[in-house]
Amino acid sequence: MHDDTTSDAQPANQTADADDSSDFTVTPYDVEGTVDYDRLLEQFGADRLTDAQIRRFPDHPMLRRRVFYAGRDVDRYLAAAEAGETHSIVTGIGPSGPMHLGHVLVFYLAKRLQEATGAYVYIPLSDDEKFYAKDLSFDEIEAATRSNLRDLLAVGFDPERTRIVVDRLDADVLYPQAARVAAGITQSTVDATYGDPDNVGLSFYPAMQATHLLLPQLVHGRHPTLVPIAVDQDPHVRVCRDVAAKERFAADKPAALLGKFLPALDGPGKMSSSSDAPAIELTDDRKTVREKVMDYAHSGGRVDIDEHREHGGDPAVDVAYQYLHTFFEPDDERVEELAAQYRSGELLTGELKEIAAERIGEFLAGHQEHRAALGDLETELDPYRLTEDERARLRPSVFE
């Protein structure tokens, strides 16, 4: 495992050699090309999850199938969960538009972990970061925030053990802690980890991200925290681990659980609202899902039916299959059966797309039913907000 006595902060950008045909870039603000996940582990200094570690997690297809495939210090978190000791999960979102499939799956994983072990779950919404990083007004970001909050509430977290925080809404308790954290992060660390920030807001923002990841410990005391995220967000965890290692913060280094991207419909990068192909949004109906999958999903099949029947397709590059494998077909045997049928040519690309569209449509119908059942947003959100006692623990005293 990674040595706790060393710094975790390393350059966030990973770009293959110029003569390598698989050039790719992964940063918190940019993902391009076909990602080599093994090389990212070398770059980021994380460890591939072992079979034994996977078995210790509550059963979930994204863990069984190694969609979440690597991490740091997960044993410490698992030991606390197994012993019934305090443990927590932090995973959030930057609200810049409607949520899509690539956003929501990690929250369903977090819900599964909470149901199985009673973990605290903290969900930060970094609305201020999106103002620094995107060409969006505060009004546009607020509209996205309200929409995202409805989708997060629809997931169905336990309100007794879940806290949803919004940077601008909860600035009175978040900002003083972020200011304290910022004093423990050097500009050279920010530059080395993120590159040259576009503005001073992004230069400061790692302090706010570190505050997010330390929130459960600031509220509940020192304990193991797990951060399940896509690999592009790992730099935030590494900077926070450096902060936590400083004696004055008296916090355990948050553990990381790193996941692969849900590919864009046109492959191979992560699903994004800015992709050439449309993202599948959480409000899409079954007809819209089917149209998007049938029209845009990248195929691993052959150019014509006869050739496909003879030579078969490649599920490793077929986006419809990748969606089924990632989450939307829960039966492992069925997933393997679909892959075998596709490789043999028995299953055609159009048929595979139909299966994927149906499974995704079923999932979204259930999510939308829960979303539609929500009442007034402020009323629904209230049980998930920090309590006055919790806020008091986060407010610094003038006598400290």
Rank of each mutant, 00 (worst) to 15 (best):
A183E: 11
V155A: 05
A70I: 06
D170M: 00
D170C: 01
Q114V: 11
A171F: 09
A110E: 08
M99R: 07
I89L: 15
Y120D: 01
Y175L: 08
D191N: 15
F107S: 04
S126E: 13
V190D: 11
E115S: 08
P124T: 08
L153P: 12
E140V: 00
L174Y: 07
E85R: 15
R163L: 02
T186S: 15
D59T: 13
I54Q: 08
E160A: 13
L153M: 10
I93Y: 11
E160D: 14
I93D: 12
G184M: 13
H87K: 01
F157I: 03
A133H: 15
L105N: 08
P159K: 04
V190T: 13
V74G: 07
R163E: 02
V166H: 03
L136W: 09
A79C: 05
V190G: 14
L105V: 11
A182P: 10
M99H: 07
Q53A: 14
A133C: 06
S88G: 10
R168P: 05
S137K: 02
L63S: 09
A119Q: 10
G94R: 06
T86Y: 06
Y175D: 05
Q114N: 13
A83G: 14
P61S: 04
A81W: 12
G195H: 03
V90G: 02
G102A: 12
R72M: 14
F57H: 13
L105M: 10
Q177V: 00
I164D: 10
P176A: 01
A179V: 01
G118R: 11
A52F: 05
L169V: 08
Y132F: 15
F131S: 06
M62P: 06
A178T: 05
G97C: 09
L109T: 08
P61W: 01
T189G: 02
S137G: 07
A183M: 03
D172M: 00
T145V: 12
Q187M: 15
L136I: 01
T91I: 01
A79K: 03
K134A: 00
Q187P: 14
A52R: 08
F131R: 09
D128I: 11
H60Q: 01
M99F: 10
A80K: 02
Y120M: 00
S96R: 02
R55H: 14
R65W: 07
A171E: 13
A83Y: 07
H103I: 00
L105Q: 05
E140Y: 10
R55W: 08
L169W: 14
I123F: 06
Q187H: 11
D172Y: 04
P95R: 04
D191S: 12
M99K: 09
